Simulated assay, not measured.
Amino acid sequence: MKVALFPGSFDPVTKAHVDIVKRSVSLFDKLYIGIGVNSNKQGFLTISQREQMLRAVFEHEPKIHVIAYEGLTVDFCKSISAGYMIRGIRTVSDFEYEKAIAQMNHALAPDIESIFIVSKPGYSSISSTIVREILRHQGDVSQFIPTEALEYL
């Protein structure tokens, strides 16, 4: 069985995230969306809100499972028997950052492959960080967020 993990903070989930998930789900038997918990960071949304939001967005896709985790992502991959890690690439700087992480992950867990999915051009400028900033200033984020996620904001 081919199992993959798409890790991230998803604070909040964006249309760019959804695009990466939809384009990668057909490659695997099971795709986990892993919400990384960083106890040193204060999130915009709670972990519970992010889990509920992601489940609402992907409720009609039986191959997708949403779960929060702590610790090293490669250790979490092992715990769910994921042999693949999906990462979205929007820009050249994303690639450099993700490449470094993939190389470190490979050193820690050579049996887990990192797979990069390049963002569609229309989504390359969308990031959770920018969406949070718009939200903090009471701006309209509906064009950047899946409809199912709006009620959680």
Rank of each mutant, 00 (worst) to 15 (best):
F10R: 04
A100E: 15
I117W: 15
K41C: 04
H60G: 03
V21D: 04
I126G: 00
F58H: 06
K22A: 13
L150T: 06
V74M: 03
L72V: 02
Y69M: 15
I86F: 06
D111C: 12
P62C: 03
S128C: 04
G88M: 11
H106N: 06
V131P: 00
F95A: 03
V131D: 05
S26F: 04
Y97A: 01
L150V: 06
T14S: 09
E70D: 09
K30W: 09
K99N: 07
F95G: 02
T14P: 02
G122S: 13
E51K: 07
L108P: 15
S127M: 12
K22S: 14
I89R: 05
M1L: 11
S9D: 08
Y69F: 15
D140E: 15
F144Q: 02
L135T: 06
S114M: 04
V131F: 00
Q42K: 12
K99S: 07
M85I: 13
A149E: 14
G8H: 10
R87T: 07
T73D: 05
S9Q: 09
I134M: 14
F28C: 02
I35V: 08
S48H: 07
R55Q: 08
V37R: 11
L27K: 10
R23Y: 15
A4V: 02
Y123N: 14
A82Y: 02
K63P: 01
V37Y: 00
M53D: 05
L153T: 11
V141H: 09
